[in-house]
Amino acid sequence: MAKHKIYSMSVASVYPHYIKKAEKKGRTKAEVDEIIRWLTGYSQKELEAELEKQTDFETFFKEAPQLNPSQAFIKGVICGVRVEDIDEPTMQEIRYLDKLIDELAKGKAMEKILRES
């Protein structure tokens, strides 16, 4: 089965869209970066390096320093699909990121987005 085209897209090509979506709703680039770092374990410097290298989504998540174990608490629908029901791990991680950015744009508090108790 052929891989979805998002796997080969660079994170850097989608990143400005994440920023734009957040900023349109009064949120910041710093909050987007914090979400990405929380989900993947990249430091800010590492994240910037991955964006600079034009790393594709598949590699970005495969080589992530430490995927956050709390990602299992991310629930809901994105693109008409329940993120918790996605079987393919990389696609699920991509959709987790989409869901978190969506929550940011909807005005959810960072503590809730980052699943802090």
Rank of each mutant, 00 (worst) to 15 (best):
E46I: 08
Y18N: 00
A49S: 15
A22G: 11
A105F: 07
K29F: 04
L67A: 05
A64V: 02
E31G: 04
G41H: 06
F60C: 02
I6D: 05
I94V: 13
T40F: 07
E93M: 13
E50C: 08
K75F: 08
K24T: 13
L114C: 04
F61Y: 08
G26S: 10
P69C: 05
K112S: 13
M9H: 09
R37C: 15
K106S: 04
E34R: 15
V11F: 15
A64Q: 04
P16Y: 08
A105D: 11
I101H: 01
Q54Y: 07
Y96C: 13
E58R: 07
I36E: 00
I36K: 04
E50K: 15
E116N: 12
Y42F: 11
A72F: 11
L51H: 04
I78L: 06
V83L: 02
K24R: 15
I74H: 03
F60P: 01
I35N: 00
E23R: 07
I94Y: 10
R95E: 13
Y96H: 15
E84I: 07
R82Q: 10
K53H: 14
G80V: 07
K112A: 09
I6A: 05
A72T: 13
F61W: 02
G80L: 04
I74E: 06
L47Y: 09
K3L: 12
I78V: 15
L67V: 15
P65W: 00
L100R: 07
A109D: 15
T55P: 01
A105T: 08
P16K: 03
H4G: 08
I6R: 03
K75P: 01
Q66C: 11
P69W: 08
S8H: 14
A12V: 04
T40G: 00
E88Q: 13
M1L: 11
D85T: 12
K99R: 14
F73Q: 12
A64F: 03
E50Y: 09
S10A: 05
K62C: 02
K20E: 14
E84W: 03
I19S: 00
E23A: 01
I101R: 02
K5L: 14
E46H: 09
A49H: 10
T55N: 01
I94P: 07
E31K: 10
Q71P: 02
E58P: 06
A22R: 05
R37N: 09
D98T: 00
S70R: 14
A12G: 03
T90N: 04
F73H: 14
V32P: 02
D56S: 03
C79S: 14
L114H: 12
